[in-house]
Amino acid sequence: MHPARPLPPLLSLRAFEAAARRLSFSLAAQELFVTQSAVSHQIQKLEADLGVPLFERRTRAIELTPEGRAYYDKVHAAFELLRAGTREIRVHVDERATLKVGILASFATRWLAPRLHEFSAARPGIDLQLRPEIALADVSGGEVDVAIRYGRGGWPGVRSQQLMSERLSLVCVPSLLEGKRRPRKPQDLLRFPFLASYSTHSFEWEVWAHRFGLDLARVQRVQLHDYNIVVEAALAGQGIAMGRHRLIAQQLASKALVEALPDAVLDDPRIGWWLVTPKGTLGDPASAFRSWLMQTAGQEALDGTH
């Protein structure tokens, strides 16, 4: 009977799991706070130990080999168990629990922040850390515990649950629509500058334009860093913005912003705000935050609040 061979070094397994999950040596290095060459070295050691290549290395990308994919499924599951167990221990040991929430700055300031006192009062032992990022925070890898994302759901490797749908229409200050410039049909909106927040895929504009049969190829666009800046630019009369009604309810109620064409409204139940969680078991802080979010968002839907 042959003696059991020892497991590969934990450093090599951590490097492999992070690189396989992100399909990037450089992103894995950032996550592990090491150099890219260190990650590559650890994976080479692991491949030598196992006797099989785990990655196909290309000029600008890496892909898992069939053996690498099979091994990743088991290694990732093992690390998920370790992460879940660590979270459970920390919740019970720490006097206070910290919950890291990945979130867009616009949603944090315009919807979540005014309501956070309710959660803090209900769960005073949980400290929330809001991490505003334009890029999608890595929930499955533990960068954050949960995330709130804007879109149509269906992100790979995570669970997503819609908090509330979004109502979309083009908005601006009332003075922009005075006199002969007042639009009568969707095509009339194309003569105004469009204010847009940075996005790798501006699906809401595409869906809106498709719904009303418009071609936005020649529209003058002003690309801004964040949706908060889009709203401020619209309030300053710089152009027309895509109004996410959940976030600009106060400005619409006060008439600081108005719908440029009230009939050109997009109500697509797939577009909205989603709570994104890992596929593993949630700890108590994340579960409590999810329950509160779903209840708060659901009550607003019942009240018809936008």
Results as ranks from 00 to 15, higher is better:
residue 254 S to K: 07
residue 113 A to N: 09
residue 54 L to R: 01
residue 24 S to P: 00
residue 257 L to R: 00
residue 202 S to P: 14
residue 79 F to D: 10
residue 196 A to R: 10
residue 4 A to V: 08
residue 150 Y to S: 03
residue 289 F to E: 05
residue 98 T to N: 09
residue 291 S to Y: 06
residue 255 K to M: 04
residue 113 A to C: 11
residue 194 F to M: 15
residue 28 A to C: 10
residue 121 A to E: 05
residue 278 P to E: 01
residue 66 P to K: 08
residue 171 V to R: 03
residue 53 P to S: 13
residue 53 P to C: 09
residue 288 A to I: 07
residue 303 D to G: 05
residue 235 L to K: 04
residue 171 V to D: 02
residue 160 S to D: 08
residue 230 V to H: 03
residue 125 G to M: 12
residue 265 V to A: 01
residue 201 H to M: 13
residue 214 L to H: 07
residue 18 A to T: 02
residue 49 D to H: 12
residue 200 T to N: 14
residue 156 P to E: 02
residue 280 G to S: 13
residue 196 A to V: 11
residue 33 F to H: 13
residue 39 V to A: 02
residue 38 A to P: 00
residue 231 V to H: 01
residue 259 E to F: 08
residue 109 T to D: 12
residue 46 L to C: 11
residue 136 L to V: 13
residue 18 A to Y: 01
residue 198 Y to S: 12
residue 26 S to E: 06
residue 272 G to M: 05
residue 221 R to E: 08
residue 71 Y to H: 12
residue 268 D to N: 13
residue 90 R to G: 10
residue 167 R to K: 15
residue 177 L to I: 06
residue 200 T to L: 12
residue 208 W to P: 05
residue 278 P to C: 09
residue 55 F to K: 00
residue 106 S to H: 08
residue 184 R to A: 11
residue 122 A to D: 06
residue 126 I to L: 14
residue 83 R to K: 15
residue 57 R to Q: 07
residue 217 A to S: 15
residue 153 G to E: 02
residue 112 L to N: 03
residue 288 A to G: 09
residue 180 K to D: 13
residue 306 H to Q: 13
residue 225 H to W: 10
residue 3 P to W: 06
residue 120 S to A: 15
residue 273 W to R: 05
residue 173 V to W: 07
residue 112 L to T: 02
residue 267 D to H: 07
residue 235 L to S: 05
residue 268 D to L: 10
residue 301 A to R: 14
residue 59 T to A: 14
residue 19 A to F: 01
residue 238 Q to D: 04
residue 61 A to F: 06
residue 270 R to P: 00
residue 227 Y to N: 05
residue 88 E to V: 08
residue 301 A to E: 12
residue 6 P to V: 05
residue 225 H to R: 04
residue 157 G to Q: 01
residue 50 L to I: 05
residue 110 R to Q: 15
residue 116 L to G: 03
residue 114 P to L: 11
residue 208 W to I: 06
residue 93 V to N: 10
residue 74 K to S: 15
residue 199 S to Y: 03
residue 78 A to L: 15
residue 61 A to Q: 12
residue 21 R to M: 04
residue 56 E to H: 11
residue 71 Y to E: 04
residue 73 D to R: 15
residue 96 R to N: 05
residue 21 R to H: 07
